[in-house]
């Protein structure tokens, strides 16, 4: 059976991370399974952890009154869900809902924050990885806002 450090080691987010750091981080984690429809996070609830998605899909959603939930993005195996634990007021910004059976590693954000404060090298290594995730998501959002499919014309059609 794979240990938690093994599982983290396999995940793209922790690729090439120092083994000592990985073992250190793994001590803040636990395996978890969500069924379809379960919430990993609720908007405005305390964000004390984040999830390393190993298998399954997670919808990042926002609830719109008189309308229902709107899915902004789906995450899948290889993705990370949650960075609200990094910044005050440590509240989830969006809902996270399992779309099918989700296998994940839950990492305790409070525990990690304390470890990062105590070991700035670990903190920097982790922040660099989160910065990459944040910029990737920003890039995705910008492309979504460009609405590229609306700009296209019929294939090979000058439209004139």
């Amino acid at each position: 059976m794979k240990t938690l450090p093994d599982l983290l080691h396999e995940h793209a987010f922790f690729k090439d991370m120092d083994e000592d750091h990985l073992a250190f981080i793994a001590r803040c984690g636990e395996n978890c399974i969500f069924n379809a429809g379960d919430h990993l996070a609720r908007e405005n609830a305390p964000a004390n952890d984040f999830y390393v998605i190993r298998d399954g899909r997670v919808a990042v959603e926002s609830y719109v009154p008189n309308h229902g939930s709107i899915c902004l993005q789906t995450l899948q195996s290889g993705d990370i869900f949650g960075w609200s634990w990094l910044f005050p007021p440590y509240l989830w910004t969006f809902d996270g809902r399992a779309l099918d059976e989700v296998h994940a590693v839950r990492l305790d954000g409070k525990c990690l924050r304390e470890k990062c404060d105590a070991d700035p090298k670990l903190g920097y290594a982790l922040m660099k990885r989160f910065a990459r995730i944040v910029t990737d998501r920003l890039h995705t959002t910008r492309v979504q806002l460009m609405d590229v499919y609306d700009q296209q014309k019929t294939s090979l059609d000058s439209g004139k």
């Binding site: 014309k153 019929t154 294939s155 090979l156 059609d157 000058s158 439209g159 004139k160």
Partner: peptide, 28 residues
């Protein structure tokens, strides 16, 4: 007028052409 439109059907069809067109300009 006239515009270029790709074939969207099977090349093995042999039963005419299939074209998919999005209404965008005058000709389309």
């Amino acid at each position: 007028g006239e515009i270029p439109i790709s074939m969207s059907g099977s090349p093995a069809d042999g039963n005419g052409y299939i074209h998919t067109i999005r209404s965008h300009g005058f000709v389309s």
